[in-house]
Amino acid sequence: MSANIKRHRTGLGGIAFAVIRPVMSLIDIPLRALQRATGQGGMASFFILPNMAVFTIFVLIPFAINFVYSMTGGIEIFLNQRDFVGAEHYRDIFTCGSYLDPASCRRDGFWTAAQNTTLFVILQVTLLIIVSLITALILNRQIIGRSFWRAMFFFPVLLSPVVVGLIWRWILQRDGLLNFVLLEAFGAEQFNWLTDRTAAFAATIGVSIWAHMGFYTLILLAGLQAIPKDLYEAAEMDGTSKSRVFRRITLPLLMPNLIVVLVLALIKAVQVFDEVYVLTGGGPGTSTMYLVQYIYEKGFASELRNPGLAAAASIIMGAVLVVLTLMQMAASRRNEKKGER
């Protein structure tokens, strides 16, 4: 995108301009005085101030007090009504007979959610990348109606998680479309997908891939299209086989985008919540209970509310996310260096 654009101040834009102009000119009067008093540097502060204020109040301060929160106990929301308990929540969380067996832990809910989330992340991210990569490779071919197909795969990305959850709940229910299709095709019995532990878990993976693959496909497709065509032509001249071209040219040159996709998908998968919450509500039992839902329920929803525990859990999750973010930064930096060479 370049800043050099051609627009015409007619129609809507013109009307908007005519409306906004007096307002902006009015605002300009006190601001000119401010500029006279503080100079350009002062104006820089003025421009950054609203954003910084909101950012500080609603992001930075919550970040800071989250730590305090995680060291207090009780069910009260306001800090001054809460007792200091030190590292008790963390101790509780990490008191475990075996980390692999949530039942042996004091906070078995947390470890169940953590285990579910880990399994979800591993399976979902792997499948997501495979599906997105295949789709991107296909969209990069000379196919009729390419922009339509590209748009089609992107469509679910825009849908709200609630809508996604409801659509699939409707389809996966006992009397739903999936059972109907299976009945017509294979004469299969009606099966209750969302009340079977394994099937429900698989459904959350499938639905979240359905909802997000379009986004990652786009990033990968952008990477594929950035690979110079003459490289492929040169390889063709050399008589390189298609699979070899893929392994030796496409994959290495796509690596930067693959890394971005991997890390973004990881970060997103760790935070899985909305569509799964609507789809299964964490059930059956706790088989699709993931970390964010655990935090949400401990913090706000459940009868046995424990905001301190929720804060501690969110900090542990945040730490994981920070590690993943750092990984992305390191990876992209390494790639930039590679690009310089």
Partner: peptide, 12 residues
């Protein structure tokens, strides 16, 4: 994400 700071944000 916002998800990490929901608890303190709620108190704010």
């Amino acid at each position: 994400p916002l998800g990490v700071i929901t608890v303190p944000l709620y108190s704010i």
